[in-house]
Design a binder for these strands. Sequence first.
DNA 1: GCGACAG
DNA 2: ATCTTGTCGC
Length: 223
Amino acid sequence: MEPARSVAEARQIQERLRERLVFRPPRGFKPRVVAGADVAFDKARNLAFAAVVLIELDSLETVETATAALPISFPYVPGYLSFRELPALVAAWESLRQRPDVAVLDAHGYAHPRRMGLACHAGLEFGLPAIGCAKSILCGEVGELAEERGARAPLVDPKSGEELGWALRTRDRVRPVYLSVGHLIDLPTAAELILRLAPGGRYRFPETTRRADRLAAEYKSGG
DNA sequence: GCGACAG
DNA sequence: ATCTTGTCGC
């Protein structure tokens, strides 16, 4: 991943990379292994602990995991999360023996000020379909959506009216997750996948992010 | 100038 | 993201 020494430089990199994004799945896209990725931080040690978990879609069994720790090289600035989390994520990703079919990131993809969130950046970096599944909104607005699991409502840019992603309910009467395309995927395909990864409406987040989050936390605290 | 603001 | 125990609710 190309590093950035300033926010201005990071912005130029985002504006250049966004031209490469593709918003449709590969021909005959039939994912079998899905990757979940997340990063935990330790300010005192100035380290970022990345974790990648590979899950078989049919059984939801974890089939492989990978971790990597790197010094924190960029501050948290809304809109520039990639430059803080992606370096460590790429390091972990490169130690994987198996190539997954799609990756789910705990962040936004297209639903970003410059349409180039972490899920987009990761998709380009990994050369794989990638989905953004965030806990809260970075930009855009959503209307009301039904209380039942499976309900969805568009996340739109109030200025242009453009659809940035979807608010998707994974559990009855529980706050939705915010879905957006990263790379080589479309919203309907992404939503179907996320619902399969959060079966029975038991948890709000898909298994990919739950397991990657837990692994990153364990790795950080020595394990 | 004043808010908003993924993780 | 991170600091942190118990606690209210289905």
